[in-house]
Amino acid sequence: MTEKETILKAEARDLSFYYGQAKALKNISLPLYDKKVTALIGPSGCGKSTFLRCFNRMHDLYPNNHYEGEIVLHPDNVNVLSDKVDPIEVRMRISMVFQKPNPFPKSIYENVAYGLRVRGINKKSILDEKVEEALTNAALWNEAKDRLQDLAFNLSGGQQQRLCIARALAIDPEIMLFDEPTSALDPIATASIEELMDELKSRFSILIVTHNMQQAARVSDYTAFLYLGELIEYNETKKIFTNPDRKETEDYITGRFG
């Protein structure tokens, strides 16, 4: 891992999160660097997805949840969890790809254009250009260009996931969140998504939750190991996977528990 200049894009500061009374995240502090991939690993229920979903305030959609601490977005130096921040504005800058491909019941074209239309951009020439660009960057343009008006459900699972990536790309995000993006895909589709992620990280900061340790090792620059809502260890991926500081991390990585 070359230590080129790393720019801080966002950081969690002493972040805790509660589902009702239950404390799901315990005082997590973690940096997110620009143009780098940060992976979150840990056993099921350790809070990886919960942590990821704090970044675009998805927890706001459900009642009785609350955050403590901060997630500071740079260069604004603003806490995105603050009441003064509009979660919709946050989601317009931090986009997300889900575990299961979730295209909308619309055509391929309209799926990609969705984020732009929501922002009030309806001019056809702009949409055409953005849709093509996003699909190209998501490595789906060649497969989809002749069937843009087809329903998105007609695509295969891997294509649907790339469509969801294109949809998230079309809005030029500053950070992209991936919540186990390949867990519903076969190995070939997984490989193509991983390859894609490697290309995309030159454009923005990526935070990915994964169950697959090889995937974390392959795609990420930094890795955080979470266990029972706590951040056990955070470091460069290479260090985590070759010489972790903590015994728990080593046990998890070598498959002794989890």
Partner: peptide, 29 residues
């Protein structure tokens, strides 16, 4: 209409009303 489809829409920065009219209603047509 499954919750993850709605979440997809919210994650794109849409409001409740946009999600209802542009994603949920077509999905439940």
């Amino acid at each position: 209409v499954p919750m993850h489809i709605r979440e997809g829409s919210y994650a794109m920065g849409s409001t409740r009303f946009q999600t209802a009219t542009r994603v949920v209603v077509p999905g439940a047509f």
